[in-house]
Amino acid sequence: MHCCRICETVCSIHHEKVCNPTRARIQIIKWDMSGVYIPMVCHQCESPVCETVCPMGAIYRDEKTGAVLINYDLCVGCKLCVTHCPFGGVVIDKDSKVKKCDLCDGDPLCVKNCEPQAIQYLEASSINFLKRKVSAEKFSELMKKLL
């Protein structure tokens, strides 16, 4: 992680047409004095809690991108989605509207603009492979020590 707030800034410029990192849908939680930064954003859950709790049925999945989206024609702004999401994935904006990551129509700008590739957007299959590869590398190191 690097923390230059470029992801937050491009998110606010793209969605709100202004620079205001506090209005971004992605936010980096920082512990400045110990050098730890964790990005927090909607996980696009398989069974989204926000969708389950929404009394208006305003939350749905976009078939093309897989993003969990809000239908503002149905949304009444009750904020149950905000209180129930375990990750803070839905945020309340200035105008009291609830907002969340929409994956920028399948090509997330935060990822595109993250030069150090601290945030990546990958196919599920490649994530599986990468995780297995990392584990296999650890095994391989261990085997070398044993032999």
Partner: peptide, 25 residues
């Protein structure tokens, strides 16, 4: 601060900023 900073041409600026970052990196 939480006050919006409004840029003149936000979409074009975003594209050009990406170009600048790629240029430098």
């Amino acid at each position: 601060g939480t006050l919006d900073i409004e840029f003149m041409y936000p979409d074009q600026l975003l594209d050009y900023c990406s170009e600048m970052n790629t240029m430098i990196t």
